[in-house]
Design a binder for these strands. Structure first.
Lengths: 214, 214
DNA sequence: TATGCCATCCCGCGCATGCGTGATGGTGTG
DNA sequence: CACACCATCACGCATGCGCGGGATGGCATA
């Protein structure tokens, strides 16, 4: 095999589909599909006695080990391999978890072979190939993460006390840390509760963390 | 102008670059670059007496209003317009904030006109065009968000109670909600504290939220 | 059968918390 | 000069909480 050819493994339980993809990729210029596995377990076992590939195409939704776990394990045993998820699922949770597990790209199974080939090259070049709709979903998820930085008009002192509270300190401890009277802390706390529209420290901490105002 | 042509505005302070891009895009098939602005303020003002375009190319790092704020305002006044960020910056914070503000895509200024054109079509088709490196960065950021989904071996019941606790409920309230004795909730709570290695409800809630185990 | 693990329930002590109701002084704005 | 807002401090009371002790029954696995 020529030095510049890209080594690929494919993990996909449907044997027909697997072979079809492997053959198609192998015919693409510069690709070498060296491994076909029906499950993540098989691929992981192979990693112990075979050199890792440069890219792994992984179908999530396999029998046995969840594909999501699979990504994490593959990434651990072959960190330099780019794991590209192939899936029929488009729901946010799956996408999110795949990305968190370290997937380098996320394609739909409906993608033509040329797109898959392009994606592999892209991933190895440091990119993150994604189907357009998937990419949009990722951005949407992202946008939903930090938008709720609500401003409740907390004063610096109140923010400071809220921070200590998030760390699990009691009023007495906070008073000691900030060199204040217990009563002062108490008053600040009440004002915080009012501004955050809560009436327990638990509620305040929850709101503070959820809305990232600490 | 033909019905199927795509209307575009460009916001870019460098007049030479702006005119070059506008001309180039206008020559692309199906594009109509109708507006060129030197600042977000100008574009926003134009929105009040001109129909919004389908896509806005926006250079962040402009004088006056920050480009990041600009995105949010544009999105508010012309929600249906796809805002694509054009930038020289590749740092995570800028990318992150642009995305949170609602950018539909993120391109580098070094991109050739064909790529820009493709990106606009992609964005309008519901995609999220991104430069490959940018996309990778987005995924990296994402992965860094939820890495610590630690497993503390909480039982279903304990998880359930932890959830209520995060909502700010007292032990008595939780008991009522789950139709349990107060004492039962108390015991579960103690077990939760032990497993999470905390000793206050505040600490438990903080840990639960930080590590996303709710 | 024994040994865990889980979910359920019970009592009481001491301290922390939430809240009502005050007060004082500083700072900045109309 | 009021007025608002902030930071500071104070007392008391009812309730909630953390924790030290218990207990029972169910359901697995060894």
């Amino acid at each position: 095999m020529p030095a510049e050819s890209i080594t690929i493994w494919l993990i996909e339980d449907n044997a027909t589909f697997r072979r079809a993809i492997m053959r198609a990729l192998d015919q693409e210029d510069g690709f070498h599909c060296l491994g076909g596995f029906a499950s993540c377990e098989d691929a992981l076992a192979a990693l112990s006695h075979r050199p890792p590939p440069q890219a792994v195409l992984l179908d999530v939704g396999l029998p046995g080990m969840s594909g999501l776990e699979g990504i994490a394990l593959l990434r651990k045993q072959a960190p330099q391999a780019a794991v590209i998820v192939l899936t029929v699922f488009e729901d946010e949770d799956k996408i999110f978890r795949a990305i968190c597990a370290g997937a380098a790209g996320y394609l739909l199974k409906t993608a033509p072979v040329e797109e898959i080939a392009r994606a592999i090259r892209d991933a190895l070049a440091g990119g993150a190939p994604m189907n357009g709709r998937i990419a949009r979903r990722v951005l949407d998820m992202f946008a939903r993460f930090a938008p709720t930085r609500g401003d409740y008009g907390l004063t610096p002192r109140e923010t400071q006390i809220l921070e200590s509270m998030v760390k699990g300190k009691t009023k007495k401890e906070i008073a000691a840390i900030l060199d204040l009277s217990f009563h002062t802390v108490d008053t600040h706390l009440r004002n915080i509760y009012q501004k955050l529209e809560v009436n327990t420290r638990t509620g305040a901490v929850a709101k503070a963390l959820k809305e990232k105002l600490v």
